[in-house]
């Protein structure tokens, strides 16, 4: 078989059945993260009688801790590669990216390994978030004046 033909065949055969499954997984898992977060918030509010905003910050903390712990224990990588965006877009993705790079570069030493590679994946989120936050903050100031 010719190489081009083969590539064409691969292109035709692979994505079709996977795509819909991916969408479904991402929707379900993303929804589940939000659902669990909301349940936690409601529980915290009723248990400790705290304000809604404080409760949702605690929930954020718990979610970050859980995803870091699961990454450290080693089974979160498989979940991320299965559910993809369902776990990447919530805060779990941010925590996972930092945690997995810090684990990967741990053996290269504290400064040259762990320290300099800590934000390897999450750095783009922080950089572009702060840049666009700065610009949009100024835009908001201009609009509101």
């Amino acid at each position: 078989m010719e190489k081009e033909e083969y590539l064409k065949l691969v292109k035709e055969l692979t994505p079709k059945d996977n795509k819909f499954k991916n969408y479904l997984y991402a929707f379900f898992m993303g929804g589940l993260v939000g659902f669990i977060g909301e349940i936690l918030t409601i529980l915290l509010i009723s248990l400790f009688k705290i304000a809604t905003e404080t409760a949702s910050l605690w929930t954020c903390l718990i979610v970050i801790f859980t995803s870091c712990l699961c990454t450290g224990l080693g089974f979160f990588d498989n979940l991320v590669s299965k559910f993809k965006c369902g776990l990447i877009i919530p805060t779990t993705g941010f925590a996972h990216s930092i945690m997995s790079t810090s684990l990967d570069y741990k053996r290269d030493g504290l400064i040259t390994g762990l320290g300099s590679n800590f934000f390897k994946l999450a750095g783009s989120v922080v950089l572009y978030g702060i840049l666009s936050g700065f610009i949009m903050g100024i835009v908001k100031v201009i609009i509101s004046v």
């Binding site: 977060g37 929930t59 877009i89 805060t91 978030g129 936050g133 949009m136």
Partner: peptide, 18 residues
């Protein structure tokens, strides 16, 4: 909280607090 946990909220917070 479902909206609070998404990465979109990160950018939202940055602009609001700026």
């Amino acid at each position: 909280t479902g909206a609070n946990l998404l990465i979109i909220n990160f950018g939202n917070n940055l602009t609001n607090y700026a």
